[in-house]
Design a protein around this nucleic acid. Structure first.
Lengths: 235, 235, 235, 235
DNA sequence: TATGAATGAGACTTCATTCAT
DNA sequence: AATGAATGAAGTCTCATTCAT
């Protein structure tokens, strides 16, 4: 959502910093409870100048949502399309999701908490993207059932369990704590895969596969840092 | 936070109805986005009269929080104290939690979403109660590990998985859908217990135990209706 | 446009006074240049209370427009339907229009000046009503041409001349000056009727007819006071 | 209000174009409702540069007013001083006025609508010029009465009728419609002259006189184009 | 018990204007 | 000659709360 033409080189940089600050404030106090004045104070800019950068308060919310959903969906699609067993792809997708949660906890707070503050059209877009993400997971789970790795769990309900487990993490996680995204992903997947398994003894060693994959394909979609940066600055 | 003495008999009844309505509105639009005017319109009372009943807007939030946490904690303590195997107690606790979620989805929305709108002291109380609830679960999970039913999962992390799975349910559940609390509890516990099991083949048949328990002890803590009503009206 | 139910008896009275004051301020400074604060100061009410009465600033404009157009159109329809010669009806209509202009010069200023500040739907309504008014005049002028009293003037252009002459009056008229609506109407009609006449010598003595009509039918549509009051207070 | 000396040759040209654009925008949306940003977008100039040319927003209004009043008054004085019968001079003046209205409808809208947005001193100047214009007309009408062509109409009231008829035209006229300034002038003057005539049968054939005058003196004050251009660019 | 009326702070946003570069 | 950036006042409107009746 680039601003009208005719902006200096510093514009976009500063704009991104303002959105960063907004995400942080919204995460702490909530979108509705954060005033434009608060934001202005936090970034050291008068209200007028603020609007020069942001357009509107709701715009900030939109930007934050797309900062989360953009990289997430892009990454998820890449992973889902890999030529690997479904469990590995689920494991990679889990780690990507948790990585973003760890990396931008404030964005995730806003994403999870305040998406309903969006107005009609923007809300639709966000909801559709969320739905797209869900369907990718459902697809992978269905594959795992069909190939016999998982017992006959209902794919939709299994998807919801996958999402519950991951998406609620933002409520308590501390990015600087002793657990990181890779570890948590291993734990979550361990629980889910055993829980869904047709036969626990026959489950592939997903952690080994994931380690191998990361070693063999270090460039690709496994470092969320690069993707996040690229998307958020360009958005 | 009951009103000073000297109120007619209808006072408390009407007050509870107002809180019900408030919970519904807050759940739909969010606490911050719901005005006292909205509430007045919804209950058919002018603002002056409304304040006679509610004291303040934040008061409503406090009431709603305690309506959820009161019965939940009371129930959970009863269940944790039962003389049954840990897995059955976890299963009963799971169903209680989900039952409340199904029964009072609007309260849960507010509970999950807007607890951070509380001011210092009230927030502390809520957070402590939440922590108490967590510890009950951690205790049961620890028991299951110690008796060898579960493998050596880290109890705290296992607790968080249990809570993630249950607490995020409010985001998508439809109380009038095809799934009920008992079914969902069975599914969640199936996933978690298999996921945590030391040996899946040796897991007790928790569903059978739960059915037997409900048959043998129909009166006590398994019908959340009675408890909810008693607590919410008296609170 | 009555306010939501549940207002005391003084509400409507005060509301009308506020609209009066608004019309006066808008007439002096223009709609866009008059702030709600100005209005609040003028009526001695804080902003909050003001909005309790007015709903929105644009609402004031709508009310003022309808205060003018309501009585005007009602009166004009009555007059056009009278069983009198076209020239008398035109003369009566002229006097009604000028009477309203004299009586509520501030409303007319707003009506003529700021109708374009209305938003889409409300603007449409006003424009349609204006158009209805025009068509009544066109009808009467056409009658006068067809019966041979007027020469073959183009009715549309004749209508526009009638309206130009009357509607621009608000720009300079002083209600407390030496001319009143009846006099000015006589002058305007004298100019127009002679100007349009097929044969000036054969024109009826419209002033005599008007005097006779007022004497014979004093109750009906010739005293704008009553109509104005009734409409404006009830609106 | 020319800028301080030391401007390049293109300065004045560009400045005039900006005022043109401003007149167009003010006419469409009103002076108060048009922002400097709107103007900047319309002329393709950033705000800083805009201020280099315009000085202030009110300045634009002043320029537009004087663009209308300058040529109008100059022309009117020339015409009033002609050695022709009063009715011809009135007819020529009418056509000049309507020609300007047709030619620069947007300027006229601003002129008629927003002159009250001027501050004290500038407003005075405009009002005096308007008054000067009126007096020229009053003079001609008085002549016509004194020479017996017109009946004993009150010159001031007759002037106001003349002005009402002409000045309200901007409200509905379409410059690209089927009527042009000459035609409309003929119609208006026909109505007024017959309306004011002492004896309609003895009125001179003003249309013939006007045609003759235009043929005999094509160079002078009858083509408003030249005058407009000269005045507006030099102002 | 209940109401309508009033308040004043504060919300989001726009805008004319200035100025360093 | 021109720009992008910044300001601060002011604008419209909402809202939790209070209070006389």
């Amino acid at each position: 959502m680039p601003r009208p033409p005719g902006h200096g080189p510093g514009f976009e940089v500063r704009r991104q910093k303002i959105i960063d600050t907004a995400a942080s404030l919204f995460a702490q106090q909530g979108y509705a409870a954060t005033s434009i004045n608060d934001l202005g104070r936090a970034v050291g800019l008068a209200k007028g100048a603020l609007y020069y950068y942001i357009g509107s308060k709701e715009n900030l919310l939109i930007e934050i949502q797309s900062r989360v959903l953009g990289p997430l969906l892009a990454r998820a699609k890449e992973i889902a399309a890999l030529d690997e067993v479904p469990l590995l792809r689920l494991r990679l997708l889990s780690e990507s999701l948790l990585t973003i949660i760890f990396r931008r906890l404030d964005h995730i707070w806003v994403y999870e908490h305040d998406y309903r503050s969006l107005s009609g059209k923007e809300l639709e877009i966000v909801l559709r993207q969320r739905s797209d993400f869900e369907h990718l997971i459902t697809g992978l789970l269905t594959e795992a059932v069909e190939e016999g790795t998982f017992r006959a769990v209902e794919p939709h309900l299994a998807t919801l369990q996958f999402l519950n487990l991951h998406n609620h993490t933002y409520q308590w996680v501390r990015p600087d704590g002793s657990w990181d995204a890779a570890f948590l992903s291993g734990e979550y997947c361990s629980t889910l895969f055993r829980g869904f398994a047709a036969n626990v003894g026959e489950l592939p060693d997903v952690e080994a596969l994931a380690a191998e994959f990361k070693r063999a394909r270090p460039e690709l979609p496994l470092d969320p840092e690069a993707l996040w940066e690229s998307v958020s600055v360009a958005s």
